[in-house]
Write a protein that binds this DNA or RNA. Structure first.
Lengths: 138, 138
DNA sequence: CCGTATCCTCCACGATACTG
DNA sequence: CAGTATCGTGGAGGATACGG
């Protein structure tokens, strides 16, 4: 197969534009941020509730992620000076908008989940047509 | 301020649903994946062009990311056995769909960029109302 | 031109223990 | 109940050098 005639440089590309996406991912791409946002979007939620809700999270990471989300204005932390203390976390309007756009990502993932899995199997078989294909999750 | 009467448990929450989002982010949340997808969505592109296009990337990470994207069926790698060799990368339909949904994220980020910056400044001032606020990028 | 191979660094995250 | 403090680890990613 002969190389098709190139149509010159594809222009400098505004790859700079996606830096914005990267900034979002830096905030939301963490292991737990999404889970917390999803849980908190359903209404005010307490620390311990989150700990149970976001399965697998440690106390430490819960605290850290909550602080980051609060710092970025995605969560509001309300402390009621009762005893024992009660703290509730609420999503801001901004965060709820984000939650909506995350649904687009979810739908994409759901539509193509099978495609991706198939692509992987095909690729892995092509690389080493001998070794037994390990049972992959997902 | 008295704690409002809780409205019982907020239901077990389908936090499992967002695991799909996490799978997407595991693929696309890397430092370079987005830049590559954006660049390649504009049309077939060569290795060296990508190296210049996706600013700051190393040869190593370029190769690794390309292989992962190819493995997941987001990129197609075409080798022309000429000399010197020519290799071109093209996005699949799946990847172009993803690129579209990423625009939603971009728009969210652009709409709220200022909000987030302000939230950070406010938060950081609240934590230590004395130390001079370091000039933050973004 | 298009990669691989090695080595090294840094930090996100986990485990565990303690506290107002 | 809602956190902090401390230590330890794996893996993503950078620097550099070599190869078909």
């Amino acid at each position: 197969m002969a190389p098709p005639p190139r149509q010159e440089a594809p222009a400098p590309a505004d790859v700079t534009a996606d830096c914005t996406v990267r900034h979002v991912l830096d905030r939301v791409g963490g292991k737990w941020s999404i889970g917390i946002i999803v849980a908190a979007t359903r209404g005010p939620i307490r620390f311990t509730e989150l700990e149970r809700c976001v399965e697998g999270i440690s106390r430490r990471m819960l605290t850290l992620t909550l602080r980051n989300l609060e710092r970025d204005g995605l969560l509001i932390r309300t402390v009621y000076p009762t005893v024992p203390p009660r703290v509730e976390y609420t999503t801001t309007d901004m965060a709820r908008e984000l939650h909506d756009t995350l649904l687009a990502l979810t739908h994409w993932a759901e539509r193509h989940r099978a495609n991706i899995a198939a692509a992987r199997v095909a690729y892995d078989r092509g690389q080493h047509g001998d070794t037994p294909p390990e049972q992959e999750s997902c």
